[in-house]
């Protein structure tokens, strides 16, 4: 069953002013429950805008979005940002609880479980300023999973980290996702990362249209060293290069 359905979505910033700019144009796709979908595209093509519209932080100009939840109530969303976005004046555990709707024992236990899964159980009482950037980002990931979201949105969560830390966190994300089977929409400009993590890759082109919708049918867990992963990564990268050449000739 589709958790997220998007139909003919368009977004124009500064509508009705001379600065008006269309960022997303006629986007339609749906995301089935329990799948990991990546949105890939060059920087500035509207990926973050799309996530912000899905999360409700940003308004859309036209089209429809619908979300369904398992419980039948309003859909719960989790969001992992490019930067950790933790409250600096609250401990790690208090940050985890800030986004929760209740303070029940069960909820506290769940928050602890996800902190443990990202390897930070011992740091629950630390302030964010006492953690490294990578650790803070792990808190951000644990926080989003711990709300048990119907839909988990991630916006280039590893792009501010060094390559080694990022690789470690990608492996950790794969493990957590395999256990929790959350529905994830993951934004990245990094095709290699997208192939490693996703069931499906939606490629956005400059101008905010869907260029291609690619299914990634590889066994999990996927590791960088696996040659079949590397082959597919090279192939998808090739297709993206073709898109770039195409849009460059179209522009010329």
């Amino acid at each position: 069953m589709a958790v997220l359905t998007i139909k003919n979505l368009a977004k124009t910033f500064n509508v009705g002013t001379p600065k008006a700019s269309r960022v997303l144009d006629d986007i339609s796709f749906d995301v089935r429950g329990g799948t990991f979908v990546s949105i890939v595209g060059p920087s500035g093509c509207g990926k973050s805008t799309l996530l912000n519209i899905i999360s409700g932080v940003e308004e859309h100009t036209s089209g429809d979005i619908s979300l369904t939840s398992d419980s039948g109530g309003p859909a719960r969303m989790g969001y992992v940002f490019q930067d950790p976005r933790l409250l600096p004046w609250r401990s790690v555990m208090k940050n985890m609880m800030y986004v929760q709707n209740d303070r029940s024992e069960e909820t506290v236990a769940r928050a602890r479980k996800y902190l443990d899964m990202v390897g930070l159980a011992k740091n629950a009482d630390f302030f964010p300023g006492q953690l490294s950037g990578g650790m803070q980002q792990r808190v951000g990931i644990a926080r989003a999973f711990a709300v048990e979201p119907d839909l988990l949105l991630m916006d280039e969560p590893f792009s501010h980290l060094d390559a080694i830390t990022a690789r470690g966190l990608r492996a950790q994300l794969q493990d957590i996702w395999a256990q929790s089977k959350k529905t994830v929409v993951f934004v990245t400009h990094d095709v290699v990362e997208a192939v490693e993590l996703s069931d499906r890759i939606i490629v956005l082109q400059p101008g905010g249209r869907i260029y291609e919708d690619i299914t990634i049918d590889l066994p999990r867990p996927r590791r960088q060293t696996d040659p079949t992963v590397a082959t597919l990564q090279a192939e998808v990268l090739g297709r993206l290069e073709a898109m770039k050449t195409l849009s460059r000739t179209a522009a010329a």
Binding site: G56, L87, Y98, N101, V147
Partner: peptide
């Protein structure tokens, strides 16, 4: 502002945002 956006994305109410982000 990014903390306010974060709070909204997680469905926090204006009162919660005032208490946890603005006041501190």
């Amino acid at each position: 502002k990014s903390l306010v956006t974060m709070s909204e994305a997680f469905g926090r109410t204006p009162q919660q945002i005032r208490k946890e982000v603005l006041i501190p």
